[in-house]
Design a protein around this nucleic acid. Structure first.
Length: 634
RNA sequence: GCCUCGUUGGCUCAGCCCGGUAGAGCGAGUGACUUGUAAUCACUAGGUCGCGUGUUCAAAUCACGCACGAGGCUCCA
């Protein structure tokens, strides 16, 4: 429902011509006038169809509130379709308009302009500060359902849920590894500047971005990713190096999940808004989804893999012997139509890649046991990606009831990371989970973003009618865990780049982990005549090697290798051909303007790199080996 | 919905205030050099200055309108 309220000296209308949807009216209603009245121009929207009674109730209370403020007891209800681009059916609109009229007519002098007619009107607006107000009214169930549907992953992505969250009463605390809960005001955060920033960010709920964060320039300069003007905002293009890094991260998380016992599946990207299980809440808040029309059907693009996996679970025959039952999907993509101003670089996107794992557990005991294991798993995954415990802040959120019966679990979580963590506790359960944690990366601009998360979901098994057979042969509802071991893949890249930017400011030399570096070894021949030998050396190296055979000075080639963050730079000339060793600049051990150079054999370099990338996925060089034939992407 | 700022070769930007037929660096191409660790030298190509209208002898420059982008505010019962 869209409302435009005008406090007017008078309002006057006259019907001209009826449209096909016009309501039948008496002659007396064909014109009307009210002096000193509040005029409510209104448009009933398709979103209101789900609950016309609720819409009526809320609209009436809004109008009454304003009528009281402007001290008038005359109200003109005026249907005005132009307020919305998503109108309800005429039938519902008339129903709602009449309902509002009836509800108000007891206390006020009410007139209602007829629906579905072309009308001439004149109005005189009083012009005082309260005389022009607009309101959008949304059905209550929307916010509630949206909260419940904030099923997977990053806490901040479904802002409907945030709205509910912002009205929920939260108790904030700091939990220290010794198990003490501290009031935030009484806890000295000075030794923990990043936690301080995270706490400020969380509690103030201020999420505006003032300037482009450093990773935006880096993602372009390193030719990883870029904005795509031909698409919608927040849908990025990835150049070969970016695709490589993404692919390695995706494969890594999948490998880890497989080792953990998860089965990889693939589910559709788009769903029918009218599917019985999805319909009841989805078609009420299309705002946050991409919706697309396919022939006559309304589809939406998934914002997580929950639907697909739960729909599979629903159809499965599951025994208690199969539990915990874990499935994972690398969702390329999940789509969320985030508000324009919230999109930034790789931090927050409208299309992103998220590993989404769900575990069906027999009961709360098994769920808690899994939760612990997945907490440790997440720490390990991020650590291997290059984001360590010191690089993020832990938030643990739960209901009071859950805390009372699981104190030991929660204290152990703080003990594991061995530093203070932020606690948020609710008296009552507003959401589908009773316990969740996230690891939050705090970037160079003090903005926090969630990476890994695990949640214990006590609602969706019921909603999707998922059950398993217990030892007595009876059907039971499982408890469901949601887990994104790394968080969104793009966001991991963002975190790595932001971390590198912060380290640069501290005087360190920035780089990506070797297993993620697009070029692992760059060989620079001293002159053209060394190229053949360089090619031989490159074949002794079992990694991503490229050769800078361009007609440039050594100095320039070395500088460019540095600007690309190449971990190992090798210069080869006559000397190397003679003694069989190579000169290697090791980026990880260099300082700014202090290159660390060693003279070793190709075999030694090879085994060093092999050790560094052991156990990680590997892909071949995504670009031409010889730089002279490589294109520039911008 | 409102406000501010921006839009000039592939990229980054100058020129606009005080109108006089468009500039730099990087990148690209060609040639020279055959090179030992953070930018070798020279030359060449490349722009109807976001779109439209107006003012003017003359508009990248001034005015108005529009489009797109970035940011902020408001709203998000």
């Amino acid at each position: 429902m869209q409302l435009l309220l005008i406090h007017s000296d008078y309002i006057e209308y006259e019907t001209k011509k009826q449209t096909p949807v016009a309501e039948k009216i008496e002659e007396s209603l064909k014109s009307g006038r009210l002096e000193e009245a509040l005029t409510a121009f209104m448009a009933v929207e398709s979103i209101d169809e789900a609950n016309p009674e609720g819409t009526i109730k809320k609209t009436v209370s809004e109008i009454e509130k304003v009528a009281t403020q402007v001290k008038t007891n005359r109200i003109m209800l005026y249907p005005y379709a132009h307020l919305s681009s998503d109108l309800s059916s005429p039938k519902v609109a008339v129903q709602v308009l009449k309902g509002i009229e009836t509800a108000l007519s007891g206390k006020y002098e009410v007139k209602r302009a007829p629906f579905g007619w072309y009308k001439a009107f004149s109005i005189s607006c009083k012009g005082h500060p309260l005389s022009e107000l607009s309101r959008s009214i949304r059905p209550e169930e929307t916010a509630k359902a949206a909260g419940k549907v904030e099923v997977c992953g990053e806490k901040e992505v479904v802002s409907e849920a945030l709205k509910a969250e912002s009205t929920a009463k939260s108790y904030w605390r700091i939990l220290t590894p010794d198990g003490e809960l501290h009031e935030i005001e009484n806890f000295d955060l000075t030794p923990y500047p990043k936690l301080q920033q995270f706490v400020d960010y969380e509690i103030s709920k201020s999420r505006a971005v003032e300037r482009a964060p450093p990773h935006v320039e880096l993602m372009r300069r390193l030719e990883l990713a870029d904005y795509e003007p031909g698409s919608d905002s927040g849908n990025m293009r990835y150049y070969p190096k970016g695709r490589l890094v993404k692919s390695l991260l995706e494969n890594y998380v999948l490998d880890v999940a497989t080792d953990f016992g998860a089965m990889e599946v693939e589910t559709p990207i788009m769903y029918d808004m009218n599917h019985p299980t999805l319909k009841k809440y989805l078609d009420r808040f299309p705002a946050r989804q991409y919706s697309i029309e396919s022939d006559k059907r309304q589809m939406f693009l998934r914002f997580a893999a929950c639907f697909g996996q739960f729909l599979i679970n629903h159809d499965m025959t599951i025994s208690y012997k199969n539990l915990p039952l874990r499935m994972i999907e690398m969702t390329r993509y999940s789509f969320r139509k985030e508000q324009r101003g919230e999109l930034v670089g790789l931090r927050r996107l409208r299309a992103f890649t998220m590993p989404d794992m769900h575990s069906l557990c027999a009961d709360m005991d098994q769920a808690v046991d899994q939760f612990k294991k997945q907490y440790d798993l997440c720490i390990d995954v991020l650590d291997n990606i290059g984001i360590h415990i010191k690089d993020y802040e832990v938030a643990i959120r739960f209901t009071r009831d859950f805390y009372e019966s699981n104190k030991e679990l929660i204290v152990n979580m703080a003990r594991t990371v061995n530093k203070p963590v932020l606690i948020e506790m609710w008296d009552t359960r507003f959401f589908y989970f009773v316990l969740k944690f996230e690891f939050n990366f705090v970037d160079a601009l003090a903005k926090a973003s969630a990476l890994s998360t695990v949640q214990i979901d006590v609602e969706n098994a019921e909603r999707y009618d998922i059950s398993y057979v217990n030892p007595d042969g009876k059907l039971e509802r499982p408890t469901v865990l949601h887990c994104s071991p790394s968080g969104a893949i793009e966001r991991c890249i963002y975190a790595l780049l932001e971390k590198a930017a912060m380290e640069t400011e501290e005087g360190k030399v920035p780089m990506l982990p070797v297993w993620l570096s697009p070029t692992q070894v760059r060989i620079v021949p001293v002159s053209e005549k060394h190229v053949a030998f360089v090619e031989e050396v490159s074949q002794k190296l079992d990694c991503r090697v490229d050769i800078d055979d361009r007609d440039l000075s050594i100095g320039k080639k070395v500088r460019e290798a540095g600007r690309e963050w190449v971990p190992y730079v090798v210069v080869i000339g006559d000397k190397e051909i003679e003694d069989g060793t190579i000169n290697v600049t090791i980026r990880a051990e260099s300082g700014q303007n202090k290159p660390k150079k060693v003279q070793i054999t190709p075999e030694e370099l090879n085994s060093r790199i092999k050790g560094e990338i052991a156990g990680k996925p590997y892909r071949k060089l995504p670009l031409a080996k010889y730089l002279s034939v490589r294109p520039k992407f911008f």
